[in-house]
C-alpha cells in the first residue's frame, strides 16, 4: 500500500506540473508521465491488458498527437510569453491550495467518518477472470461501438483536414 501511496502522490505532482507548467510541450510530457504512473498502478491492480493499452495508446499515441498539434501552431514571441505567464501565474496560483485543502478535507473525512455500513452493503467479488471471455462474449456490443467510434474519428479527421487544405 505504501508503494501505491507513493505512486499516487507522484501522479498528483505530475498532474500539477502538467497543469501549471508554462510550456505546452512540457505539459504534454507531464501528461505522458501521469499516464505512465497510472499504467504502473493498473499493473499493480491486476489489470495488465488495460495497462498495456494505457501505456501504448495514452502515453505514446496521445502524446504524439499533442506534440504534433503543438508543432503545427506558431510559438509565441518573448513579450507575449512574459505577458501571458504573469496572467497565468495569477490564475493558477489557487490550484495547489485547492488541492491541499481538498486533500486535508478528505483525510479528515477518512479518519472521522464511519463507512462500515456502506462497506457491508457492497458485495464480495468473485467473477469472471478472463478478459477475453468478457470482451468477446459478455461485451460484444462494445466491439461494434469501438469500430464505429474509430470510423467516426477517421471520417472526422479527414473532413477537418480536407476543409483546411481547401481554405
Amino acid at each position: 500500500m505504501t508503494i501505491n501511496l507513493m505512486l499516487l502522490t507522484a501522479m498528483i505532482i505530475a498532474a500539477l506540473w502538467t497543469v501549471m507548467g508554462r510550456s505546452l510541450l512540457k505539459a504534454s510530457i507531464g501528461l505522458a508521465l501521469t499516464s505512465a504512473i497510472i499504467t504502473i498502478l493498473m499493473f499493480r491492480l491486476d489489470s495488465p491488458l488495460a495497462a498495456v493499452f494505457e501505456l501504448s495508446v495514452c502515453t505514446g499515441l496521445i502524446t504524439a498527437v499533442f506534440v504534433s498539434t503543438i508543432s503545427l501552431t506558431k510559438p509565441l514571441t518573448f513579450p507575449e510569453i512574459k505577458k501571458l505567464s504573469k496572467d497565468r501565474n495569477k490564475r493558477f496560483r489557487y490550484l495547489p491550495m485547492i488541492i491541499i485543502l481538498v486533500g486535508m478535507a478528505l483525510a479528515y473525512i477518512n479518519l472521522k467518518m464511519d463507512f462500515s455500513a456502506v462497506r457491508e452493503a457492497l458485495p464480495e467479488g468473485a467473477h469472471e477472470t478472463d478478459v477475453r471471455n468478457v470482451l468477446w462474449n459478455t461485451r460484444q456490443l462494445d466491439i461494434f461501438g469501438q469500430i464505429i467510434m474509430i470510423l467516426t474519428g477517421t471520417f472526422g479527421v479527414i473532413i477537418l483536414f480536407k476543409g483546411t487544405r481547401k481554405r
Binding site: A50, P123, E128
Partner: peptide, 15 residues
C-alpha cells in the same frame, strides 16, 4: 469488487 476482467474490457473501450 473482483470484476477486474470486466473493468479491463470497459477501460479498453474508454481508451
Amino acid at each position: 469488487s473482483g470484476q477486474a476482467a470486466l473493468g479491463q474490457a470497459l477501460i479498453i473501450t474508454l481508451i
